Simulated scan of single mutants.
Amino acid sequence: MTVAQIASRLAEYCRNQEFSLAQQELYADEAVSIEPADVPGFEKETKGKEALREKDRKFNAMVESRHGTTVSEPLIAGNAFSFVLTMDIKLKGGDRQTVTELCVFTVKNGKIVSEQFFM
């Protein structure tokens, strides 16, 4: 797949809130995820596909309900792409909130090798 095809496919998975399926299909085994420094309960950097799956499970366990997810059209530059992801969620024990982040991805050999989130 090209970078544009990967970007389009990931955006569609995210719009459908199918984050686990996206990781399974589109991510390299050695993929790295980098969070903003101020995300409680999560490491700044997560390495490896299995660790990313665990991170996804941990986040899903924190969510009480989802009320919609939107994803902008991907912006592509060379082997990288980005989009804006907005989630309307209610975390367990918390208030309903809208979380918006800029998601930046790097692709190598047809797989996503890194993701970084900015809020």
Rank of each mutant, 00 (worst) to 15 (best):
E12F: 04
E12N: 10
E12G: 07
Y13T: 02
C14Y: 14
R15S: 04
R15V: 02
N16G: 14
N16I: 05
Q17N: 14
Q17E: 11
Q17K: 12
E18C: 03
F19R: 03
F19Q: 03
F19S: 01
F19W: 04
S20E: 12
A22P: 02
A22V: 01
A22M: 11
Q24S: 14
Q24G: 11
E25G: 02
E25N: 05
L26F: 06
L26S: 06
L26E: 02
A28D: 12
E30H: 14
V32I: 14
V32F: 02
P36S: 02
P36Q: 08
A37R: 05
D38M: 09
V39W: 07
G41S: 05
G41A: 01
F42Y: 13
E45I: 15
K47D: 00
K47C: 07
K47F: 07
G48F: 05
K49M: 01
K49L: 07
A51Y: 07
A51L: 09
L52N: 06
R53V: 03
R53Q: 11
R53Y: 06
R53M: 10
K55M: 13
K55D: 07
D56P: 01
R57N: 07
R57C: 00
K58A: 12
N60R: 15
N60K: 13
A61D: 15
A61I: 00
A61K: 15
M62F: 08
M62C: 11
M62K: 11
V63N: 06
V63R: 06
E64L: 10
S65I: 09
H67T: 01
G68L: 00
G68N: 01
T69Q: 11
T69I: 10
T69D: 00
T69R: 11
T69V: 10
S72E: 06
S72Y: 08
S72H: 09
S72M: 09
S72T: 13
E73W: 07
E73D: 15
E73G: 12
E73N: 14
P74I: 03
P74V: 06
L75I: 15
I76T: 05
A77L: 14
G78N: 04
A80Y: 04
A80R: 15
F81W: 06
S82L: 11
F83A: 01
F83D: 03
V84K: 07
L85Y: 10
L85G: 00
L85E: 06
T86K: 12
T86I: 09
T86P: 02
T86V: 14
T86E: 10
D88I: 08
D88Q: 07
D88A: 07
D88R: 10
I89K: 09
K90R: 14
K92C: 04
K92Q: 13
G93K: 14
G93I: 05
G94R: 05
G94V: 00
D95I: 03
D95S: 13
D95G: 06
R96Q: 15
R96K: 15
Q97C: 12
T98V: 15
V99K: 14
V99M: 10
V99E: 07
V99Q: 05
T100E: 04
E101A: 03
E101W: 00
L102E: 00
C103Y: 04
C103R: 05
C103I: 01
F105D: 06
F105E: 03
T106K: 15
T106D: 11
T106S: 11
